[in-house]
Design a protein around this nucleic acid. Structure first.
Lengths: 290, 290
DNA sequence: GAATTTCTCTGACTAACGTCAGAGAATGGG
DNA sequence: CCCATTCTCTGACGTTAGTCAGAGAAATTC
């Protein structure tokens, strides 16, 4: 079909025009591997095992790359709390190098936009945003993770912050439902994370409410990933796991200000029911028979 | 500005998601350089100097890559008419390998589309096409070339073929204006080629009609590159060169069926004038004072 | 507290990528 | 016919990228 043809052309155009330029800009006087590593360490620093995972590098290779950067005075590394893992950060010189890489990335962007007229630029940027967005959707993965893992905690923090800003009366996690991680771990429940391109962009949790009855909690999708069907995919995954746990019924509650969420639950087949818990921030209660 | 930010994100998304996958799919059991080379030779075969130019390869490196492919029985090469240049083509085994590469490229495309729903797929493909299109426009270059160079001849052949199909009475180059290349070479005139991403997608020619009067000929843009302002850019370049030749007036003729061309000429400031030549395929004549 | 696992580092290696200088053949211009 | 140019090929070389096996330190599990 023509679509495949279009995509093939896109791949070739983009990987020559952008890919090549990208690499060239980024790695002008530095091996590409080092440049990518600087990029990935970023302003916040990073642990080696994360770097290995994100860049899919062999541990030996990563070690050597880092030593080279240390020799150049761009990276300094201490130990993390777990003394087996090492945490590295950019030195001031390394940060300057990162800024330089960003600048080059911007130059690349400029070089793409410069030859176009204003109307074309606007169209190009809009189309690129759409591609970025949809590629993110296309690379969405959903997987279980402990509710007290780093990614999960970061996700929940964003979730609470958003509730705080949206609920009429604000939100205090301490006054909400209990937060201990064990209830969201098998066999009592599960905690799911949605990721695209290595970034965590959403979560959902399932726990046992009563025998054969599960409760869905903490469904959240980060702002930049909305409109891509992430929440729906999360809810699908929740249901799949719920069947695995032999739940016959799923329940959940939600606040009156979260109207998109209510619309989603309805469209997934949840019916509104009477209050079934004493959650202080809940205004609506839903149920679905599996 | 936000645009740069958007582009940066696009670059990173695409070069990780597509770039990496692209390379991995393409070069599964073969060095990437060889795979790209097979791709670039294509079904039609190619001359070594073109390959060097298009892939920006060192001549030594290219030579070695080719020898490796020859050893594998994928490529066979004779001499071109100019005995210094070598022309290589894919053997049947090479063509099979090319088909395999295409298949992998399609797999990549499928892997991008598969996780999306139908509406998202349509949007992604549309946005990708727009990006492809605009990136081509953004990498447009216009440069002078001899009217009897290979690229120019290929361009003119497409031009004549299109006239043949569009003119009510068909078109026979032999009955049109004289075609010797010298009249389009300095100091009497110039021949311009428009290229994007290594492909030639349009041309325009300028010759001396009378002292201080130039004539524009052979303005053509390939079908897939229309709507990007290529013709306008070509005409701009023609005018720039015309000023260099000290022409005070530019003339041109066109056929009644080429309505877009007429609209373009008018929008560039050409006024319709009386017949000034005896070109048999001309129905309208235009002039512009520089 | 012993065994296992996790994580980093080192050494040894291979393949791929890329550059440079120069030789040799063919061509084109004067 | 000579000279400059174009084009390909070869040899020699250096860097980058990536893999594999194993050692040693710290943490976790039983």
């Amino acid at each position: 079909m023509g679509r495949i043809e279009d995509l093939r052309r896109f791949n070739r155009t983009v990987s020559t025009r952008i890919g090549v330029l990208h690499d060239r800009f980024l790695g002008r006087d530095r091996p590409l591997g080092e440049a990518r590593l600087i990029y990935e360490i970023g302003e916040a620093g990073a642990e080696l095992r994360d770097l290995r995972a994100r860049l899919e590098l062999d541990s030996g290779y990563l070690s050597r790359l880092l030593r080279s950067l240390e020799k150049q005075g761009l990276v300094a590394g201490g130990a993390a709390e777990d003394a087996r893992v090492r945490r590295v950060a950019l030195t001031p010189a390394g940060l300057a190098e990162l800024a330089e890489l960003d600048r080059r990335s911007d130059d690349l962007a400029q070089s793409l936009l410069a030859p176009l007229d204003e109307k074309q630029r606007a169209k190009l940027v809009a189309a690129m945003n759409e591609v970025t967005h949809l590629l993110a959707a296309s690379s969405l993965t959903i997987e279980a993770a402990p509710a007290d893992s780093g990614d999960a905690k970061a996700c929940l923090a964003s979730y609470y912050a958003e509730l705080q800003s949206r609920f009429d009366a604000g939100y205090d996690p301490a006054k909400g439902a209990p937060t201990d991680a064990a209830q969201f771990a098998p066999p009592r429940g599960i905690f799911l994370l949605a990721r695209t391109l290595g970034r965590t962009i959403g979560c959902a949790a399932l726990r046992t409410w009563a025998p054969r009855v599960g409760e869905v909690k903490r469904v959240w999708v980060s702002k930049e990933a909305r409109g891509l069907g992430v929440a729906r995919r999360l809810m699908d995954a929740v249901e799949t796991h719920a069947r695995g746990f032999c739940f016959k019924t799923l329940r959940l509650d939600t606040n009156r200000t979260l109207t998109e969420a209510q619309a989603l639950y309805r469209s997934l087949g949840y019916r509104e029911i009477a209050r079934y818990n004493d959650e202080r921030y809940a205004d609506h209660w839903f149920e679905k028979r599996l």
